[in-house]
C-alpha cells in the first residue's frame, strides 16, 4: 500500500483555485464564500454532511452549473465552464455518481463518446473504429486493469470496471483534474478496493483528483487533504496526515477534532 504523501509544502501556482464561490437558488443560499486551492497532483477530498453544499460545489467545478458569485481559476487563469463537455475540453473531467456511461454501447464507444476519432476517406470523415479500440485499450491498461474486449457493452461490466471506463474517457481527454462524485457509493467491498486502487493509480500519474465521498475510511486512505463544508461554507481545510476516519467524522458532525 502506498501511503498518501504529504505535498502541502509544494510551491507553485495551484492548478485549480476557487475564490469566493457562492450559489443561490432564488431565496435559498446553497454556497457562500467558498475559497480554496488545489495543488497539481494532489488528491483532495471534499467532505460534509448531506446539504453541506458538496453537490452544488462539484456541479460548479464540473461545469454543470455556473456560480452566482466568485471566480474559478485554472492554472492561474480565470475560466468559465459553459457545460460539463466544455469543462472536459479544458481538462476538468467529472466521473458522475450515476456514471454517465451509455450501458448498451461498447467500451470503445463510451471512451470516445462525443469525441469520436475519424479518418477522411475521399473527403468523408469516417469513424476510425480500429484506432479507437486500440487507444481505448491503451487508456484502460494505464489503469492496470485486465482489459476486456473493447467491443463489449458497458452493461456487461462490473461497477468498478465501469468506473475504469469513465476514467479512461477522462484520460482520453488528457484531463488534468478528475472529479469523482461518490465513486464507491454503490459498490461492494471488492469493487471498492478496485476503485480506490484506480484513484491511487491516476494520482501516481500526476493527475489531480478531487474526491467527494461519504466514506471516511476511503477518504483517509486516498486523500492528502480535505476541505470540509458545512451549511454552504468552508469550515476546515486541512492536511489529513495522521488523521483517522473517526477524527474526520467528528469534524464533519461539528465536534472539533484533536
Amino acid at each position: 500500500m502506498t501511503p498518501a504523501t504529504d505535498t502541502s509544502g509544494t510551491a507553485g501556482t495551484p492548478i485549480l483555485s476557487l475564490e469566493g464561490i457562492g450559489k443561490t437558488y432564488g431565496a435559498v443560499r446553497a454556497l457562500s464564500g467558498v475559497s480554496f486551492d488545489v495543488r497539481a497532483g494532489e488528491t483532495l477530498a471534499i467532505c460534509g454532511d448531506n446539504g453541506a453544499g458538496k453537490s452544488t460545489l462539484i456541479r460548479i467545478v464540473s461545469g454543470a452549473q455556473t456560480p452566482s458569485e466568485g471566480t474559478i481559476r485554472l492554472a492561474g487563469a480565470p475560466v468559465t465552464f459553459a457545460s460539463p463537455a466544455d469543462a472536459l475540453s479544458q481538462g476538468v473531467a467529472t466521473i458522475y455518481q450515476d456514471l454517465a456511461l451509455a450501458p448498451t454501447m461498447t467500451i470503445a464507444q463510451n471512451v470516445f463518446l462525443g469525441s469520436e476519432l475519424t479518418t477522411r476517406v475521399m473527403g468523408v470523415p469516417l469513424l476510425a473504429k480500429r484506432r479507437m479500440r486500440r487507444e481505448a485499450a491503451e487508456h484502460l491498461s494505464r489503469l492496470r486493469l485486465a482489459v476486456p474486449d473493447m467491443n463489449r457493452h458497458v452493461s456487461d461490466l462490473s461497477g468498478g470496471q465501469r468506473q475504469a471506463v469513465a476514467i479512461a474517457r477522462a484520460l482520453r481527454w488528457q484531463a488534468r483534474i478528475v472529479i469523482m462524485d461518490e465513486p464507491t457509493a454503490a459498490l461492494g467491498v471488492r469493487e471498492t478496493r478496485l476503485v480506490l486502487n484506480l484513484i491511487k493509480e491516476i494520482a501516481s500519474q500526476g493527475i489531480t483528483v478531487i474526491l467527494i465521498s461519504h466514506n471516511m475510511a476511503d477518504v483517509i486512505e486516498v486523500a492528502e487533504r480535505a476541505v470540509i463544508l458545512k451549511g454552504g461554507r468552508k469550515v476546515r481545510d486541512t492536511a489529513l496526515a495522521g488523521w483517522t476516519a473517526d477524527d474526520l467524522s467528528h469534524v464533519i458532525m461539528g465536534h472539533e477534532a484533536a
Binding site: 460539463p84 463537455a85 454517465a100 451509455a102 454501447m105 462525443g114
Partner: peptide, 13 residues
C-alpha cells in the same frame, strides 16, 4: 447514443 443514453450523451457534449 441519444436514443440509448440521452443523459450520458448530453454530458459528453
Amino acid at each position: 447514443a441519444t436514443g440509448q443514453a440521452d443523459e450520458a450523451a448530453r454530458l459528453a457534449g
